[in-house]
């Protein structure tokens, strides 16, 4: 697997939360395909220079969320059946949380409902149109 994860140990966001989100995102974006094997805990810990127990915790979370399958002796694999939808749902959770923060911030900065709605519409127009044009 290529190096597609970057974690920031100096952040106040727990490392296992950062890495769990990134792996889910990688699956949702197809950077990790269904059935693909994840590196061993030791290999990923050494690659990122982070604690192996932290990586093991990430794999346990992913297993619990139904995103990967771990079988003793064989390793961890992206689930073939539900991986897509589970990972999409997980990514939608991340996006919802980010959106929530943005709207809360707008409100606490004193923007009215109408102003926030307008800002949202403008932002959507900007990003979604760019995407259509480039495809």
């Amino acid at each position: 697997m290529p190096t597609i994860f970057t974690v920031d140990p100096r952040s106040g966001v727990p490392l296992y939360v950062q890495l769990t989100e990134q792996i889910k995102r990688a699956i949702a974006l197809g950077m990790l395909a269904p059935g693909e094997q994840l590196p061993t805990v030791k290999a990923l810990a050494l690659e990122l220079t982070v604690n192996p127990n932290t990586v093991a915790r990430v794999y346990r979370e992913l297993e619990r969320d139904g995103v990967i399958d771990t079988s003793p002796g064989r390793g961890s694999f992206v689930r073939g059946d539900v991986a897509g939808s589970e990972a999409r749902r997980a990514v939608a959770d991340v996006a919802r949380a980010a959106f929530e923060i943005a709207v809360r911030e707008a409100k606490s900065l004193g923007l009215s409902r109408e102003e926030t709605l307008e800002l949202t519409a403008r932002t959507i127009a900007r990003w979604y149109e760019t995407e259509t044009e480039s495809q």
């Binding site: 805990v41 030791k42 810990a45 050494l46 220079t49 982070v50 604690n51 192996p52 127990n53």
Partner: peptide
Amino acid sequence: QRHVLDLMIDAAAN
């Protein structure tokens, strides 16, 4: 310094 961290991580993983 990074090597030292990697050595500790390798030892713990084992």
